[in-house]
Design a protein around this nucleic acid. Sequence first.
DNA 1: ATGAAAGCGCTAACAT
DNA 2: ATGTTAGCGCTTTCAT
Lengths: 337, 337
Amino acid sequence: MEEEKVTIKTIAKIANVSHTTVSRALNDSPLVKEETKKKIRELAAKMNYTPNLNAKALVEQKSFIIVVYFTDMADGTSPSFMSAVIHQIKDQLPKGYEIAVDSFASLRRAKQSINLRFDGALVVSQSASDDEYIEQLAETGKPVVVLNRKIDRDDLYNYSSDDYAGTTSALNYLLRMGHRDIAMIAGRKDFASAKLRCQAFYDVLKANDIAVRQDWMLQGNYSIDSGYKAMEDILNAGDLPSCVFAANDDMAMGAIRACEDYGFKVPEDISFIGFDDNAYSQYYNPRITTIKKPTSEITHYGIGVLKALIDNKQPELPRFENLKPALVVRDSVKKLK
Amino acid sequence: MEEEKVTIKTIAKIANVSHTTVSRALNDSPLVKEETKKKIRELAAKMNYTPNLNAKALVEQKSFIIVVYFTDMADGTSPSFMSAVIHQIKDQLPKGYEIAVDSFASLRRAKQSINLRFDGALVVSQSASDDEYIEQLAETGKPVVVLNRKIDRDDLYNYSSDDYAGTTSALNYLLRMGHRDIAMIAGRKDFASAKLRCQAFYDVLKANDIAVRQDWMLQGNYSIDSGYKAMEDILNAGDLPSCVFAANDDMAMGAIRACEDYGFKVPEDISFIGFDDNAYSQYYNPRITTIKKPTSEITHYGIGVLKALIDNKQPELPRFENLKPALVVRDSVKKLK
DNA sequence: ATGAAAGCGCTAACAT
DNA sequence: ATGTTAGCGCTTTCAT
């Protein structure tokens, strides 16, 4: 059961060569005769040899670990974003690499600094409070790519979603559909995306001479439940908006549920537009009109660049790009006449 | 920017002690005077010292990596399960450990064996095809805990959801509500949970003298879309069942959407019961009656045991437990008279 | 084309 | 209480 551990020295002894030759053969060095290589490789396979990555890492000053950092795994970060990133990165990276997952929130909780054992880092950042850790990562001089949020530095590769533009197109659509009484349920305060979506909301309303009513500006935290509760507040107050812009689809779903519970029909009595286009939006009842966040493009860009960086190649993509979300019209917004 | 790398030898030189003393001091060995310890610790902090985990790992024959394996990250494994496991494990494990995430599907695709660099493994297993990799993990002699599915060996710690019992209680509830024309949308064929949920379906119907109609037994794959398509098949065929048992909530949601699209009302025209109780089930329209899978208990058990095993302690939990799911009655099943 | 020796940063026997 | 030495498994000069 317990296999004796086989190292390059074990192989060397049996093959009657030095362990140096074994090392070279296994790394396909041109310094070893094809014949010897073949013999050694076969032997290694037969003996079930696996290299000790710790030793290799020690001498090569590498670690064969790619780390993925999230702002917070407990909440705010959608599980599907997380799973997509990990899954895609796993499939594209060279074999032998481990994907380590961590969060800045847990570092903060444990008052820890970042772990230095990584060869490249992918950061899915939601908040400016991540900057201290991003700085720590950058200081190592190793490849770092920041996704999801625009950062204030131009030495790192950075891909984000243009949430301001996305929100603008959402509101312009509502306006075109005849809505002027628009409420908003905002996202988690400390998240950059929430701030941008709010700011755009204010700006577009102002540009269209619509006063923002504070009782129609609710604070959520991106969770379904927070959408439900915020909507209850709207429903329990005075007059109703004709439409609600929820800063993400999860909150839109919670809010729609609240409407149903209070006897209002969506979109007959009240319309909704969300943000993200999550996995359930197109199946929800009603199907949710929303802004599709370019998540998979962001992920794809990030992984491609990180891979190039680790391979010491020049990435073909620009340092920064603010990818455009797209309006997806479905059934949750009613056209007013 | 590029900090000179500081090792225990650097510190030793400045502190005028041997690197051994530094090592001992940093590891809080009783062999070092408190005073010296303090001095060295302060020095280390000031110099921004971080231990080289590769070196430590090499000499200690450890790796400071906990690996979490999923059957398949591309589909089948719910992102929320994944995020919950990673998040919880991260919070409970000793500092300095990395959580590495991988999937057997990707190993298979790359024709790779498991990576030996880990100190403990948590396997979220869906399918018997995982067994070859579980065997590889077990052979290392390191702590391995298998979750989600009952395995055929008793040397590993193993916690699963009793899907057979869960399905039985779902069907008994339907029967109590007066349903006898029951269709089923099954889950991904190769997944153990799907098989158990099917088997229980057959058994309960048979026990109640209800013939299983093959045109009411549809094959899905646990995705929302597969639920939609399966339901279309039912709707396009002859007579309608009074109720559909979907092997998970995602498929139930897809199927309900199909009903709406075809002009049927849920639960007035047709009832639904799901499985899992996912994050959206209680907000869906209608709220979905379902079987709550004891996911968080399973995760909790698994992490607790793995932690104990890694600390060389005897876990307080039994080797195996088949945790009971619970019926959650909501609005998607109509009572027939 | 192959081997001997050194060294990566750390811990642990074995001195003292 | 502290230091000396060896060695974990690997790659990399430097010889031959």
